[in-house]
Amino acid sequence: MSNEHILDIQKIMEMLPHRYPFLLVDRVLELEPGVRLKAIKNVTMNEEYFQGHFPNMPVMPGVLQLEALAQAGGILVINSIDEPLGDKVFLFTGLNKVKFRRPVVPGDQLELCVHYERHKLNIWKMRGVAKVDGQVTCQGEFSAAIADKGVM
C-alpha cells in the first residue's frame, strides 16, 4: 500500500464538511479507491457526549460509531469518483443488519473498516465494521447518496 493514500486530519477536513464535535475520523490508514478504506477514531474522555452517556460509566453511543463508519465511507466514495463533489454533499440514506457487539470507552482506538459493495447512479452501498483491539464493536450495511446541497 502506497503512503500517498494515507490521509491526515487536514486532508480529511478538506473532504468532509464535519467539524468538532462531529468529525469522527482522525486518520485514514489504508485506502483502495472503489474497494475499501481503513481509518481510525481516537476516543478520549474529552468527547462532549461522555458528559451524559453515561456519567461515571462513559460509553460511546452506538449511533456515533455508525456515524464514524459513514464518514469513513464518505471519504472512500469521494476518493472513488472521477470528479470532486463541488456543491454536492454525501448523505446517509439507510442502515441494515446493524449489530453492536462491545462497548467503546475512553482510551479506545476505534478502527473503521469500510468496503464498497455497489452503486447505482448517486446511491452508494457499503458495509462497515468498527473494531477495538481486533474485537468488533459494531457492524452493518449502509447506503448514502450524493445530493445537491440545496435539497437539505
Rank of each mutant, 00 (worst) to 15 (best):
I75R: 04
V89T: 06
Y20T: 05
R102F: 11
K88L: 05
R118I: 14
H18G: 00
K131S: 12
Q139T: 10
T137A: 08
L7A: 03
V98S: 09
E117V: 15
F54T: 00
E48G: 11
R127A: 10
P103S: 03
V105S: 15
G52I: 08
E111D: 12
L91P: 13
H119I: 03
V104C: 10
K88W: 11
H53W: 10
Q135C: 14
V43E: 07
D87R: 05
C138I: 02
Q135Y: 13
L37Y: 01
L110R: 11
F92S: 00
K97F: 11
G34L: 02
T137M: 08
L91R: 09
A39H: 00
E83P: 07
N42E: 06
Q10N: 14
F90Q: 02
D108W: 09
D26K: 02
W124T: 05
K97L: 09
V114I: 15
L7W: 07
A130Y: 07
E111C: 14
E111Y: 13
R101V: 05
A145Q: 04
L110S: 07
I81V: 04
G134L: 02
K131F: 07
P84I: 02
V89F: 13
E48C: 11
M45Y: 15
L64S: 04
E4H: 12
H119K: 13
F100Q: 06
V114C: 13
